[in-house]
Write a protein that binds this DNA or RNA. Structure first.
Lengths: 202, 202
DNA sequence: ATATTAGTTGACCGTTCGGTAAAGTCAACC
DNA sequence: GGTTGACTTTACCGAACGGTCAACTAATAT
C-alpha cells in the first residue's frame, strides 16, 4: 500500500470509528484529521467533501460486514435456523464488546447513519439503501435454503420475508441502543423465527 | 395562554417540526428562533439549553402521539387484530402525507432522535426510552385483550411480544425512510401478526 | 538528472455553532 | 401609580464548522 493509500485508509478508519461511536454531524473533518494524524489539506486531497468520505466509509463498512459477519454467520455448514442463531450470537457479542469499550451499545452503523442523514444527503441515503440490499440478498439466500429444506412454514414471498427480517433486526438494535442494553438482542432477536416462519429447532 | 406561554409553545413547535424533518444536529437554535419569530435571548429565558428544549419537545411528542394515534388506533371498538390494522393504516397514511409535504418519508421521530443522540446526550436517551415505554404499554394492553379473547396463538411472555412488535415497527419505519418509500409500511407491517402470533382475521 | 505528479503542510476564508449579559419593555398586582 | 418580576431585545463571546489555497516536499518516470 502506497504512502497516499495509507493516509487515505487512516482517514477512512478514523471516520468510521468516530462516526459510529457518536454521529455524522457530531464528528467534524477537523477531528477526523486529528485522529488520523493527517492535515486538513490532505483530507481534501483525497475526498472532495465530508459527504464523499462518508460514502466511502459506508462502502468499507459493507465489505467488512460481509466478510466478518454475514459470510461466517450464514455459512452453509448449518441448517438455516442455526445460521440465524449464529448470526444473532455474533450481533449480541459484538454489541456487548462495544458497550465494554465505549460504555454504549452503538447499534447498527448503517441504521444510525440512515436515520440521521436520509433526509439531508441523497447520495448517503442511496448508499445506505445499497448496504441494506446486501444484507437483504444474504437473507433471501438462507430463506431459499430453508424453503427447499421444508423448514419454512410461511409461504409468503421470500423477498418480503427477507425485508421483514432485516427490519426486525434493525428495530431490535435500535431498542438495544436506546435502552443501552445488549441483552435485548438475545431476548428479542430469536423471535425472528416466528416472523419468517422458520420451524423451531426442537 | 399567556404571552410567555405562547412564545415557548412556538419554540417547541418550530423545534419539533424542524428536527423531525431534518435532524437534531442540523437544526440550530438560531434557526429554531427565526422560525418561531423569537429572539435568541428569549430562547434561553425559557430553556437552559438546546438539549433541555429537546426533552420538552419529546414530551410534547409523546402526548400528541398518544392522543392522535395510539388512543384512536387502539380503541377497543374493534378486535385486537383489527386495532393493529388500523394502527398500520394510520402510520401509512401519515408517512404518505409527510412525503407529499417534505419530499421524504421521515420515519419515527423518536427513533430518529434515539439513534442520533443516544450516545451523546444521556438525558435525551432516557427520555426517548420513556417514550418507547409509552408505546410498549399500549401494546401490552392490546396483547392482553387478544390473549383473553383466545386470539393469541403465541404463548410467550406478553412483555416480550410487545417489545418485539415495537422493534418491528421501528425497523419497518427505518427501511421506509431509507428507501423513501411509504409503501414498505403497507407491505411489511402487517407481518407483525406473524411475529406476535395474532390469529389472522379470516 | 530533471520534470512531473502525488502527497503534505499550515495558514486562512466566511459562517454558524451553543450560549451569555445587560439593558429595555411590558403586564399585573399592591 | 409605582414597583416587581416576567419577558424581550440586541450585541456579543470563543470555538468550531466545512472548505480553500498556495507553497512545499517526496516519490516516480523518462
Amino acid at each position: 500500500m502506497s504512502r497516499g493509500q495509507q493516509t487515505k485508509q487512516r482517514l477512512l478508519d478514523s471516520a468510521q470509528q468516530l462516526m459510529y461511536s457518536r454521529s455524522y454531524s457530531d464528528v467534524g473533518v477537523q477531528e477526523i484529521c486529528k485522529d488520523a494524524k493527517v492535515q486538513k489539506g490532505s483530507f481534501y486531497h483525497f475526498f472532495p467533501s465530508k459527504s464523499a468520505l462518508t460514502v466511502e466509509v459506508l462502502e468499507q463498512l459493507k465489505m467488512q460486514m460481509i466478510e466478518n459477519i454475514l459470510l461466517p454467520a450464514f455459512a452453509k455448514d448449518l441448517t438455516p435456523a442455526k445460521r440465524f442463531e449464529r448470526f444473532i450470537e455474533y450481533a449480541y457479542q459484538y454489541q456487548v464488546q462495544l458497550k465494554e469499550e465505549y460504555g454504549y451499545v452503538l447499534g447498527c452503523p448503517m441504521g444510525n447513519i440512515a436515520l440521521e442523514m436520509s433526509t439531508q444527503d441523497e447520495t448517503i441515503r442511496k448508499k445506505v439503501e445499497l448496504l441494506f440490499e446486501s444484507i437483504f440478498e444474504v437473507f433471501v439466500d438462507v430463506l431459499e435454503d430453508a424453503r427447499a429444506a421444508g423448514e419454512l412454514e410461511n409461504n409468503s414471498d421470500i423477498n418480503e420475508l427477507a425485508q421483514a427480517a432485516l427490519a426486525y433486526g434493525e428495530g431490535v438494535l435500535m431498542l438495544a441502543k436506546t435502552r443501552n442494553d445488549p441483552e435485548l438482542i438475545k431476548r428479542l432477536l430469536p423471535k425472528v423465527a416466528d416472523l419468517i416462519g422458520l420451524k423451531s429447532t426442537t
